[in-house]
Nucleic acid binder design. Structure first.
Lengths: 212, 212
DNA sequence: CGCGCAACCTAGCGGGCGCTCGGCTAGCGG
DNA sequence: CCGCTAGCCGAGCGCCCGCTAGGTTGCGCG
């Protein structure tokens, strides 16, 4: 039967499990969250969770993989949106921050809970993450080589900017003082100034939402 | 007896427990670490741990509190070392990074595992952390008001810089390509440029180690 | 209608967890 | 030389974890 559907129950049970598990993993961590809690939050009994997922770890994997795939797609479009390194970096950071603000729960899980995955699954997600970080590295390298950004060390600088931009997930709350777009713009400014390119630059045509 | 002491056994058992627990908490997280693992790594049996600490959570608390107290002391000296906001910010970031590189295990635990503490203990450590973050906020505010740094939003900027500087604990390894001082200097540059103060500035008399 | 199966349930297994109990032992003060 | 105690241990308690077995329900469909 399809009991979960209808006016009150939203989406399918599997999707509801993913949503509430992400919330719990983000708030308490993977190991501190029990399958019974996930089940209760999703409105089913413990055993029913295992009708949709083979293990607790696979729930985490599904959340993390989807999120990294989304982020990678957004990042690729950010880089493709211009040939100018400064614009590429600003868009990368803005969309990264925007995504982390919009979907902060999933993004935090994907950033912080990977160590809880079994090695093979962890490797899959880390591969996606490395590919994503490669976008930042490429753009910073291009800025240094073609636009003379005063970047001491590409690897360190890249990682520092990515870390900074991900940090937004730790404090951002929907409906707070600042909109996702406003926060994204602030982080974009910080990033382009940090790498030392001169122009303060108009914050791009629109600091708008990432695609999808 | 004082069995643990001597040529091979280092320090007291209590200190050894704190050291190996920090290592395990940093690598696998608090909830994924068992008291039996801590005991084995410290060279004692499980029951002996409870001769020195009343609970696993109190071990985490001791690590986190000590670390935040150290960091706060270092940060206060960084601010006191100059009256010029740019120098204060650079020193704050450099010493923060240097500390995170030198004691990355403890620092990561203090940054990332606080949610595992019981509420009262968590509040104590968070109070120290808030005081520490206040140093950054004060310096950024001073730079904006007295030196016209183009800071859009003090709270967001402060948090972004602190997040960036803490991120060094995720990748730094002793004996790698860069020394703690070199990494600290790079992060110092990134921070002062990010807030938009003009001078590239000599990297201060010495980007040396923090006190203590 | 009545079969098949997706969805969900109740009940509970096996195991590892944090932690405790009571006892042994070595070194120290008197 | 004896008694005290800090330090450590073996044994194990009680709990709750991830997960499973097997049954029930009711919709989709021929």
């Amino acid at each position: 039967m399809a009991r979960g559907r209808g006016p009150d129950g939203d989406r399918s049970t599997a999707e509801r499990i993913l949503a509430v598990a992400a919330e719990l993993f983000a708030r308490k961590g993977f190991h501190a969250t029990t399958t019974r809690e996930i089940a209760a939050a999703a409105g089913v009994r413990g055993a029913s969770v295992y009708h949709h997922f083979p293990s607790k770890a696979e729930i985490l994997y599904e959340i993390a993989r989807r999120t990294m795939e989304d982020l990678l797609a957004v990042g690729r479009q950010a880089v493709a949106s211009s040939a100018e390194p400064e614009r590429q970096l600003r868009r990368l950071v803005e969309w990264h921050v925007h995504y982390h603000a919009d979907r902060r729960v999933q993004a935090r899980v994907a950033d912080e809970q990977l160590d809880a995955l079994p090695p093979a699954r962890r490797a899959e997600v880390v591969a996606l993450r490395d590919e994503y970080e490669g976008l930042f590295r490429t753009v910073v390298t291009a800025g240094r080589d073609r636009r003379d950004w005063p970047v001491d060390d590409v690897a360190v600088t890249t990682f520092a900017i990515a870390t900074m931009a991900s940090g937004v997930g730790a404090w951002f709350r929907e409906g707070g003082r600042l909109s996702p777009a406003a926060v994204a713009s602030i982080y974009g400014d910080l990033a382009v100034r940090a790498v030392g390119c001169e122009r303060s630059g108009a914050p791009l045509p629109a600091a708008g939402a990432p695609p999808r």
